[in-house]
Design a binder for these strands. Structure first.
Lengths: 158, 158
DNA sequence: CTGGATGCAAAAGATTTGCAAGGTG
DNA sequence: CACCTTGCAAATCTTTTGCATCCAG
């Protein structure tokens, strides 16, 4: 399946004696539709796409995200300096390419990383969790702008 | 070069009209000796390994780290949820393997990731910055403990 | 000397926690 | 009905800023 449904969440929760609540479903829906989002973005999304009375408290979002990650429904990655971003687990068979130029996040086939994971496992006995893998660098567009011939860093920019 | 010396820092700074100060050298030394460290760890290290009067203020550490990253002397990675960790740039030919079990950080040869970087570049035009690459997962030891037969975490699936 | 750098304290964010009230099973 | 969840507010932590003072060049 390529989409985590409310029922799936529901089931996963009950399996563990946890409760299926409307807030948790809202959070999951937000993460699903946003693709990848920080706790705050999730909060905003829910607030925007529901009746005012259906908004979810930020701390509840944090708790829901942490819980859903624990039961494997979502996973998180560090895209930038600030907050971590969450994504639905079914969305996890992609590498995340985070551009330090424009901040964009694109995806690539996870299979590309399997050889690396295999090599690391063979060499160090370390089992890579591919769901958390994100590559930082420059997207095609920003590469053009920063120019290949430059001397490197030091371009003032906060 | 396999080690960033105080003189190298000095030079890199002056080249850009910036000033070489004892604080910046202390920070660099801390990062060098610690291998990888958060701003706070750097601060603690300096405080521990110098006369009390030579300690560096935390905000100075933040500023120094940011500056040194900009001029390419150090680079940072997100090892865990919390603070980012910095490492000297010359120390960058390693992959970081971050264990979610014990929190340990070990290293592996960066060359292992070059094929991946090449594939991503070819496929998406995205130029991976290998200096920022870290893999999350379970180290050999923790794999043994969490054991394949355990109830595990979110291996579930969607 | 001059302008960049530092320390300090306060400001701004991000995340967590305690607890009473509310809702799910 | 029992107990997990939520909302809210306060407590923590982390990172950033404003400014007067200090020091490298």
């Amino acid at each position: 399946m390529s989409q985590v449904t409310a029922e799936a969440l529901d089931a996963a929760l009950r399996e563990r004696g946890l409760r299926a609540t409307p807030q948790r479903r809202s959070v999951l829906r937000a993460v699903t539709e946003l693709g990848h989002a920080t706790p705050e973005e999730v909060c905003d999304f829910v607030e925007t796409h529901s009746e005012p009375r259906d908004s979810v408290n930020l701390s509840t979002v944090y708790r829901a995200l942490e819980l859903m990650e624990k039961i494997g429904v979502v996973s998180h990655t560090h895209l930038t300096h600030g907050s971590p971003t969450y994504q639905v687990a079914s969305h996890v068979n992609h590498l995340h390419l985070v551009c330090r130029g424009c901040g964009s996040v694109t995806e690539a086939d996870l299979d590309l990383a399997r050889p690396l994971a295999a090599a690391v496992l063979a060499g160090s006995g370390f089992q890579t969790d591919l769901a958390h893998l994100s590559l930082h660098g420059l997207c095609a567009q920003c590469r053009g702008e920063e120019g290949p011939g430059s001397h490197g860093h030091g371009h003032g920019h906060s």
